[in-house]
Design a binder for these strands. Structure first.
Lengths: 341, 341
DNA sequence: GTCATTTATGGTAGCGCTATCATTAATTCT
DNA sequence: AGAATTAATGATAGCGCTACCATAAATGAC
């Protein structure tokens, strides 16, 4: 009994073979046109493109990926989507990928290396052209896959370490250090630090350590610290400033791990009748647009998130193969003087 | 001359066939274990899982997608990543997809239907399980693909229209109307509207039209409008409020199309010594966290972005086939009274 | 025990494209 | 003109998995 018509195939959907037939060429010639690869005569190309348009042919990327053991997907693992920082990075990535065949597949790790590992493994099932993730710290298993995989790797945000392939970002330790130096130079002496738990946020910890190092060099110490166990938010920043000032009312500046919380600090000042800068310095991190739009622009460190994402993706697109040399790209940061510290 | 060893295949990477061989079963039995599909004895399953662990097998999703004419990718087209609104939606989508095999592929349309169409076509090459996009307005070509494709479709944010498959969101026209009613009820009579160009933002336009309808019913009209041709931002909101008050100093409330701009309006008030609410009402849209963390919480409409994303993804996961009936899910919105209007 | 149904497992063609080798045609060099 | 090189095109096996049909084993009903 002969087998029924194979239900695998939907006859309404044109394949490359249909295109080739209509254009009067072989499959592989049509493929060459679609891929813009290999020698192809202009007249032949035109016939194939005409057939593609007539049939409304859409390539089957899974087939191409299977046949070539590679895909046009870029796996992007982001620590968070809860504030604008990583959406900005993603926007940079997306901008660089526009007009290319590459498409970002997204996962959110919640700053958890184990979640990162799990998502990475599920992404590898698609044989991505590249993996983009944040930071230089991964589980041993994840690192093994990153190191032995046949795909490019970009580790973003941090450059203080040994990347697998490419690292694009800034030195967070240096940024924290420069924050301390900057504030000491401006005359601040009684420092406080208010932020979320930094157990899982390597970069916030590095900035904190840089800040402490700068203070130590100036013969100073952090007089008070206040920590919030949950995730970062503006409301948390408001509450933290209120709490730390209750413990140490004589602080003259408070450093926050990010602008969201620093803005919360500003809102507390407004609520409590504290004049930013004149009575209490408030310093953030990231240099968000919204912080700069305040009547008193927030004093902060500008992290170049969009540039980091865009630069990383562009660098990855330069070559499908990993070069022998690892690359570290320092996008730097700016000190935004602002008006709050 | 026989052909050289096929370079297609990397012998270091275990395939399903390797798993099957090690477990002493056929390929299709191993596949059944991986897919959790079809009858499988527990002892057999354990043998296969053990082989998978030993080999570190990672499935080749492209192969599965090709063989089954379907994939585990979800195409997500977002209008923007420039503010937190759509990252919140994406966060909801991602949350619903966690622990499933589905992964979101991201494209950003910049509120341009032609870009949306282009991105959609490139995503269809991956035969996504579903397409998630914003709004109910698409190019004719895009709509044709959405209607005839063998994948689920969720149109988010707006429910005032005829969806392809599922719509999840709120009535923006009703939200604008209720904004007007709410403010009229609070005693406001001299209305201004300050926002970005709404040519490409259907939902902002619908809210504007709803607002105008409510004012008309109350025998009122918008006394002044100010438009900014660029994209929405807090700084733009500051400038717009300054400009509209120069033209119409006697306004008693100004409605903004989103919280980002409304917060800019608040910042202008702070700068210009205007007391929000008492002297001038300021009303936004979206109910962002940061707006609620201000000393005077922003008066606004709360759009349930995370819920919209999560609900849509969950609904899509219920069935791979499109049901006969289209579904409209109204997540509603809340009026946040706040303290600025 | 026999027959019918359900459970479990297996064989393989094919999904749509591309890596690779092969052939033919056109161009360039001597 | 002939040889060498380059450009253009073609044939097909195979990528890794699964839809579908087939067979065998186990279980339940009479």
């Amino acid at each position: 009994m002969p087998r029924k018509r194979n239900a695998h195939r939907n006859p309404d959907i044109p394949t490359l073979a249909d295109v080739a037939r209509l254009a009067g060429v072989s499959d592989i010639t049509a493929s060459r046109v679609v891929r813009s690869e290999g020698p192809i005569a202009e007249a032949t190309r035109a016939r194939v493109l005409s057939a593609i348009a007539e049939l409304g042919y859409i390539p089957n990327r899974a087939a191409g990926s299977l046949a070539s053991s590679a895909s046009t997907l870029m796996s992007v693992l982001l620590p968070s989507l809860s504030n604008i920082v990583f959406p900005d990075v993603l926007r940079g990535i997306h901008t660089a990928l526009t007009e290319t065949a590459f498409q970002p597949v997204i996962g959110v790790t919640d700053y958890d290396p184990l979640i990162e590992e799990r998502i990475l493994l599920s992404f590898l099932a698609w044989q991505p052209a590249a993996v983009i993730l944040a930071g230089l710290h991964h589980t041993p298993n994840a690192r093994r896959h990153l190191e032995h995989g046949r795909f490019r790797v970009a580790e973003l945000m941090d450059i203080d370490g040994d990347p697998v392939d490419i690292a694009v970002g800034m030195s967070h330790r240096q940024a924290g250090y420069d924050t301390g130096k900057h504030l000491v130079t401006r005359g601040y002496r009684r420092f406080g630090y208010a932020g979320h738990s930094i157990v899982s946020d390597d970069r916030a910890r590095a900035r904190y350590e840089g800040l402490c190092a700068a203070l130590q060099e100036a013969g100073l110490v952090l007089i008070a610290e206040e920590r919030f166990p949950g995730s970062s938010s503006t409301m948390a920043g408001r509450n933290l400033l209120e709490a730390i000032l209750r413990k140490a009312p004589d602080l003259d500046v408070v450093v926050f791990p990010n602008d969201d919380m620093a803005m919360g600090g500003i809102f507390h000042c407004q609520h409590a009748g504290i004049t930013p800068k004149a009575q209490l310095g408030i310093f953030g991190f990231n240099g968000l647009d919204i912080g700069q739009a305040m009547p008193l622009p927030l004093s902060s460190i500008l992290s170049k998130r969009f540039l980091i994402g865009k630069t990383a993706a562009e660098k990855l697109l330069e070559s499908r193969e990993r070069p022998a040399e690892k690359t570290i790209i320092n996008t730097g940061y700016d000190i935004i003087e602002g008006a709050t510290a």
